[in-house]
Computed example of a mutant assay.
Amino acid sequence: MQWRNSSSNYGLVSILMHWLVALAVVGLFALGYWMVGLTYYSSWYRTAPDIHKSVGILLFGLMVLRVVWRFVSTGPAPLPSHGGMTRLATKTGHGLLYVGLFAVMISGYLISTAEGRGIGVFDWFQVPALITSIPNQADIAGLVHEYLAWGVLILSALHALAALKHHFIDRDSTLRRMFGRADEQL
């Protein structure tokens, strides 16, 4: 398998980034959903948010790399069977996922740094608190974070359903391309 994207397949770098982001998004959502119910006396009360923040910061870095990679190694050409509406839906869906993910991560950063403390990332490095003066910063960012996280999860589910529809109903190579196997027949 090639590292870079080709005209028919995604390369290994794009595939790994796609699936790492997917895993991180689902994992962060599940962890976030679980941790908001923790009580002060839970042994995970401080550990779960630290993990959530650390993985979120790493995901932000991965998403920045992913955007750069999209310019360095453009994706495969659209399939001939995909009409204008499918191409528009694809671009719109991917755009909403990217914007939604960045907005979720930025709102998470604003929650975590509202009191002026930076974010420690697995004790490897510290991300400084740069914005702390927004009135009710933690509360507003918290609501935005929650609603956008649900939105990203729903869009991700629709994205997965669309890929399955292309694979099982349309019987085209859309899903196989994300595994680097567009040349294989169904």
Rank of each mutant, 00 (worst) to 15 (best):
D170P: 01
V144Q: 02
G151L: 04
M35E: 04
L12N: 12
M35N: 15
V152A: 12
L38D: 03
V68Y: 09
W44D: 14
G95I: 03
L31M: 10
G37I: 11
G180N: 10
V26F: 09
F29W: 13
L186Y: 08
A22L: 13
D183H: 04
G151N: 01
L175D: 10
H18W: 13
A163L: 09
S43R: 03
H159M: 11
I15K: 05
S112Q: 12
Y33C: 01
A24R: 15
D170W: 05
L155C: 06
T92M: 11
F71I: 04
D183T: 05
F168Q: 03
L143Q: 07
A129Q: 05
V25D: 14
M17S: 09
L28Q: 13
Q2T: 04
M1N: 06
G11M: 14
S42G: 00
L97E: 14
V68W: 04
V26A: 12
E115N: 12
W69C: 09
L158D: 07
S156C: 08
G32E: 08
G32M: 05
L175K: 01
F125P: 07
G56R: 11
P49T: 09
M105A: 05
I111G: 06
H166D: 12
S7K: 04
H145M: 00
L101P: 01
L164V: 10
I140A: 03
G56T: 06
H52W: 07
N9V: 10
D139A: 14
D170K: 08
I169N: 02
A138T: 04
T86P: 02
R171N: 08
V127Y: 07
L20Q: 00
L175M: 10
I106F: 08
A149P: 00
S107W: 05
G108H: 11
G93C: 14
V99F: 07
Y147M: 03
A114E: 12
L101Q: 05
W19F: 07
V68P: 04
N5S: 14
R66A: 14
L97K: 13
S173C: 02
T132M: 08
V152S: 09
V99E: 02
